[in-house]
Simulated assay, not measured.
Amino acid sequence: MSRRHRIVTVAALACVPLVLFGLGYGVGFRINLTPSYPLGVWRIEILNRDVRVGDRIFICPPLTETFRQARKRGYVRRGLCPGWLSPLIKTVVAVPGQSVEVGTSVAIDGLALPQSAVQPRDGSGRKLTPYPGVVVPPDALFLLSTFRGSYDSRYFGPIPAAGILGLAKPVFTFAP
C-alpha cells in the first residue's frame, strides 16, 4: 500500500465519527455529559401538544446575562442554542399561572417538591442565589432536576417556553 493510499485511508476513517455525529445530530440525537440526568445518548422527540407538568424536555436557555454568567461558571456548556449555549434537559414542574415559592426547597401551589433542596453554594464553593419565587408568567416554564447540584429554575427562575426543542427521551443511558 502506497504512502498516499494509507494517508487517504486514515483520513477517511478519522472522518467516520464526524459523519456519524452529524447524521445523529440531524435526526435529534444528543449526548448528555452532565449528571442532572443519566449520562449517554438522548433523543429529542417532537412535542405535538402543549407542554405539561412532568414533561422532561430539551430547552434552549434564553440569551440573558444570567445564562452568560452560568456559561462562565461552567453551569451551562457550549452548544448550538443562541449564544452558543447548550440545550438543557429539565423536568417541567410549573406552567403559566402556577405559584412557585423558593425557600430551603421548592413548593408549587403550596405543595413542597421532594428532592428540591436549594443549595447555598455550587460544587466549587461559590455562592448561589436562589430565585425568590413567582407566579409563572404566560409563555414561561419553571424547570427542575432532582439532582442536588443541578442548575435549574431554583436559581434562574422561569424561562421562555419558546426555547423548547422537544421531549427528552433516553436512548442509551447510564447512571454515573
Rank of each mutant, 00 (worst) to 15 (best):
V100M: 08
V8P: 01
P87W: 05
G22T: 12
T146G: 13
V118W: 11
P160T: 06
V136C: 04
V171I: 15
S153V: 11
T129E: 14
I89C: 00
V95P: 02
P82Y: 01
L23E: 02
V53T: 14
A107Q: 14
P132G: 10
Y131G: 03
L85E: 06
D109Q: 05
R6P: 02
V102P: 09
P137T: 11
A161S: 11
L143I: 08
G166E: 03
C15N: 02
Y37S: 09
V136F: 00
I7C: 11
G157I: 10
E65P: 03
S116G: 02
G149A: 11
L111T: 15
P132I: 12
A112Y: 15
S99W: 00
R56A: 06
V27S: 06
V136L: 04
A12R: 12
P158R: 04
Y155S: 09
K169M: 11
G28I: 10
Y25H: 10
M1N: 05
P62I: 13
D55E: 05
Y131V: 09
A168R: 06
P158W: 05
S145E: 07
F29C: 05
P160Q: 02
V135A: 12
R126Y: 08
L128R: 13
S2W: 08
L111F: 09
S116R: 05
A14I: 01
T34A: 15
E65F: 03
K72S: 07
P62C: 13
P17F: 07
P138K: 10
Q119N: 10
Q115F: 14
S124M: 00
V106M: 03
P130M: 11
P158K: 05
L167V: 12
G26L: 08
G133A: 10
T173S: 13
F58I: 05
R148P: 14
G97I: 02
G26V: 01
G103M: 04
K72L: 06
F156I: 09
F67Y: 06
L33N: 10
V10I: 15
F29N: 03
L39A: 02
G26N: 10
